[in-house]
Design a protein around this nucleic acid. Structure first.
Length: 275
DNA sequence: ATAGGGTTAG
């Protein structure tokens, strides 16, 4: 069988005209995706600056991801400052570097810079920056972002809702957190777990249990969050009772569950039970 | 073509 000869490929403008040892642009991208450190990425980056398009957003995105992996704010800042018109992906990747290194306020500032530049936030960057607000206990910024969420119609996104609840929970605004979960058409187990933890972190045991009784789940993380919270609130017997109930319901404990239950036994001096 | 959620001790 004779196969028709393929028509000669048209070189896309980003293709390296004389591919050296690094190969073409897609191979460079692939190599960057596998880089674990800047040491590995730097020569590839240098090669792109010399021979390729250093403003290629996909390349820059991968470089920022590497900075996230190895917590290098410095390298990331250099890249980001030299990016002429960062899009929402590049803002997200850069803010991720900042937030994962604990530079919450820098992350929040960078987000508001993006808004000033008329770049629309999406349902990926919003949870990220809400997490920063929660960690920094920056309720004012968080509320501002909540307003943007409503205007942009992003409030149905489940990641957005979870991070809104965490923000309000960390700031002690339980009514606002509850409003978010109550507005869900139907609550999912992660949202419920966050709401429960939000109560238990502030000693509101009975509110947490009310929320838990609405769930009915075989999800052991959710059960564990409740058991842990009870232990942290000094409700050892209640925690052990729930542990038994969990097993009766056929939910398998994980290692975190066991740590919590053993801690309860230790605090009760219940050696035999612990054994 | 580029991305993401919840639980623990020390």
């Amino acid at each position: 069988m004779i196969v028709a000869a393929a028509s000669p490929p048209i070189s896309p403008p980003y293709l390296n005209s004389n591919p050296g040892s690094f190969g073409d642009r897609n191979q460079l991208l692939f190599k960057l995706q596998k880089c674990k450190s800047i040491q590995h990425a730097a020569p590839i980056h240098a090669h792109i600056i010399k021979n390729g398009n250093p403003n290629d957003p996909f390349i820059l995105f991968e470089l920022l991801r590497i900075c996230s992996r190895c917590c290098s704010i410095e390298y990331a800042s250099k890249i980001f400052q030299q990016t002429p018109d960062p899009n929402v992906f590049l803002y997200t990747a850069f803010i991720e570097v900042l937030v994962s290194s604990g530079a919450y306020f820098d992350g929040i500032r960078t987000y508001f810079q993006m808004i000033k530049d008329f770049i629309l936030p999406d349902n990926y960057i919003i949870p990220l920056v809400l997490k920063a607000c929660g960690s920094a206990l920056d309720l004012k910024s968080g509320e501002q972002i909540h307003c943007q969420v409503m205007k942009l119609g992003l409030s149905s996104d489940r990641f957005v809702r979870v991070k809104l609840m965490e923000l309000y929970g960390k700031c002690g605004e339980f009514n606002d957190a509850k409003k978010v979960i109550d507005e869900m058409p139907q609550r999912d187990v992660v949202a419920s777990t966050v709401m429960i933890s939000c109560y238990l972190d502030h000693g509101l045991v009975s509110k947490a249990m009310d929320e838990f009784r609405l769930v009915s789940t075989k999800d052991n993380v959710c059960w564990t969050a409740v058991i842990d919270g009870l232990v942290r609130n000094g409700e050892m017997n209640y925690a052990l009772e729930l542990f038994r109930e969990m097993q009766m319901a056929g939910v398998k404990p994980n290692e975190v569950t066991v740590v919590c239950v053993l801690s309860a036994c230790a605090q009760l001096g219940a050696l035999e039970l612990g054994k």
